[in-house]
Write a protein that binds this DNA or RNA. Structure first.
Ligand SMILES: [Mn+2]
Ligand SMILES: [Mn+2]
Ligand SMILES: [Zn+2]
Ligand SMILES: [Zn+2]
Lengths: 161, 161
DNA sequence: AAAAGAGTTTAGAATTATTCTAAATCCTTG
DNA sequence: CAAGGATTTAGAATAATTCTAAACTCTTTT
């Protein structure tokens, strides 16, 4: 469940459902984020996209990214004050920032832990989102930083494979 | 444990221990952060400090803040891509960002939860720090956003009161 | 005490990720 | 086809932070 053409169909449907148009720029930006398993910055995405669509502008990349985030097709990740990164993994997960390599790894979060996180909130605090980030060293991890099958499809909106 | 003169003594010792000088600017920046229970930005700190020391510059405020963070007398807090905020609470805690008011609240984290957080890390991942941030609405919380007694003293370095 | 030296402060310039602007282009619809 | 809204684009603008280099302060050495 997540061939390129399925992802493209997902994108098209999400955009149309939001009253937006499935443009070539939005397609290629989304594709480029899905095809490499990392957490690229807007600049990196711009570079990757330019090889397939040399006329695209950086402003458009920013516009597309904002759209994709709003359509919940990718996630925005901010670490420290570094440039914003974008994550194709829509599963609930934490981020591990390897200070040695600079890489960002996805860490799966058990549902039970999420519940416990919400339990630390005093009465009256209603959280709509939680963000968990680790910083440190990841010994011998040449592994991909984002799991292979991470983007939900329209028929599988919660990503349960 | 944390009268103004005790905090000042703590600052002086920490600075000298790091080979740095206890300057009037560092004193006043630290004092201003401790005396109001919130998470001010550099600009807000600059404004508060200027009323006591009208000649101080914004660059110096940034310099002092960096020094205080390095001496572990305050914490840096980054939310989204908004200006960096500074937190006088050195206890292990999470942040709750109230999207309605913009306020940031400190959330105490039980030690047991911290252990569980580290347990989600696969073998090889060695975290030196964890950051937990909630976003949502805090109903009827006119409470202070930082607990009253939050800065450890030299005689009480782990903040156990 | 004077001189030297290291550390600090300061104003203003520089940096840089991101957003804004306004014109050109593209699509969809009547 | 014509009109209209949506989108893209290049370049300007923004804004938090960092940098630079000169002035200043405090401590140490002579
Ligand atoms: Mn999946
Ligand atoms: Mn305390
Ligand atoms: Zn991720
Ligand atoms: Zn705090």
């Amino acid at each position: 469940m997540s061939t390129p053409s399925e992802n493209s169909a997902t994108l098209t449907k999400r955009l149309i459902d939001s009253g937006l148009r499935p443009t070539a720029q939005r397609e290629v930006v989304f594709k480029v984020i899905l095809e490499k398993r990392d957490h690229p910055t807007a600049d990196e995405i711009f570079a990757r996209v330019k090889s397939q669509m040399p006329t695209i502008s950086l402003a458009t990349v920013y516009n597309c990214l904002e759209t994709l985030v709003q359509c919940q097709l990718i996630r925005q990740v901010n670490l420290e004050r570094a440039p914003t990164r974008y994550c194709p993994n829509l599963h609930q997960h934490a981020h591990f920032h390897d200070e040695t390599t600079g890489q960002i790894h996805d860490i799966d979060l058990p549902i039970e832990l999420m519940a416990q996180l919400h339990d630390v909130l005093p009465a009256g605090f209603n959280a709509s989102s939680v963000e968990l980030t680790f910083r440190g060293d990841a010994a011998g991890t040449a592994q991909p930083t984002v799991p292979a099958d991470c983007a939900p499809t329209l028929n599988n909106p919660h990503g349960t494979n």
